[in-house]
Design a protein around this nucleic acid. Sequence first.
DNA 1: ACCAAATCGTCAGTGTACTGTTCGATGTTA
DNA 2: TAACATCGAACAGTACACTGACGATTTGGT
Lengths: 188, 188
Amino acid sequence: MNGEDYVNEKKAVPAAPGPATRRGAAGALYRLPGHLIRRCHQISVALFFEECAAFDITPQQYAVLSALAANDGVDQITLAGLAAFNRTTAGEIVERMEAAGLLARRNSSLDRRMKNIFITGPGRRLLADANVAVERVQERLLGPLDRGERERFIGYLARIASENNELSRAPLRPVGEGRGRKRATDPE
Amino acid sequence: MNGEDYVNEKKAVPAAPGPATRRGAAGALYRLPGHLIRRCHQISVALFFEECAAFDITPQQYAVLSALAANDGVDQITLAGLAAFNRTTAGEIVERMEAAGLLARRNSSLDRRMKNIFITGPGRRLLADANVAVERVQERLLGPLDRGERERFIGYLARIASENNELSRAPLRPVGEGRGRKRATDPE
DNA sequence: ACCAAATCGTCAGTGTACTGTTCGATGTTA
DNA sequence: TAACATCGAACAGTACACTGACGATTTGGT
């Protein structure tokens, strides 16, 4: 079919025209968990944007809203720990969300270094709407798996994420753990 | 909606000190596959950087080397399809790798729009070294799972990635598929 | 009370991952 | 051959995800 019409080129021919040059090539890559996880992540994000197009938020912003709904008023570092991203990223995301009116930031009177983050009414409403859309994202994402497989898959993911948590560069830090000494929340 | 009402600061206390304010809070988030996948991805990347610190490459650059080792001389778009990222990203990554001497880019004489990407000697050597490091990454990443679980986990990931491939914003495009008409490689 | 260590938030810098647009080269077709 | 649609690559713009450093602040030890 194609092929004979470009004989001119001295040799744009592959340097390694081995047996692996056909389609399944680079096969090793396609069985690497790391690469597969990256692709699943891409798909997950794409589905999120598709289902949540009306809300104009990102998966990370959704995570912030979700974490904040249950831990309103925490500082940025704690929030970063709850959503598992680092301080700088958290600061940027919070800034954009504040500009969008989804959050409010107030300087703490207890510790003047801290800024406490609060979810606003619009933020809370958006979260409620987004929750159903996110439901659909998970449904489509796990579409290829049956019920039992989904359970197992989620279990595997949770174990990998939890047992390797400290290996991450932005570990999950549930409220009440870590080196937090005092907090603007939870006077207990 | 949210004003500069922080002047008074009567209470830096959470607005919703409900029953969910303790540690397991925002529990829904922590069972969402999308969020778990994101965290596993973070961990995978962190492990990669740890194990491959000596090589000064990123996971994506490793994917490029791996894909190119089996499909040398493809154009940037095809390469993007093989490694599952989009054109722009591919162009940027290739540019950095060319500067690092891992790849070479040559204008195609067949189609003057195209630039064919070739892996260099140093690139090939680095790939060989990185392969063993990547082996260790997978070992540590899947550490929490036993043999059978690893098999199943990888199978689930592969099915999700493959069956949802077209939903991704940067789908995998094996050589020989897609709308490629003619190619500088694989004259067959 | 003082000082060293630890923290919070921010800034600068790098790299990945997209969207959308533009522009030149191509090839197809009328 | 002259319009047409298409395609590869580059550019501009947005958002995330880090590292390392820094100023302001707070705390812990003495």
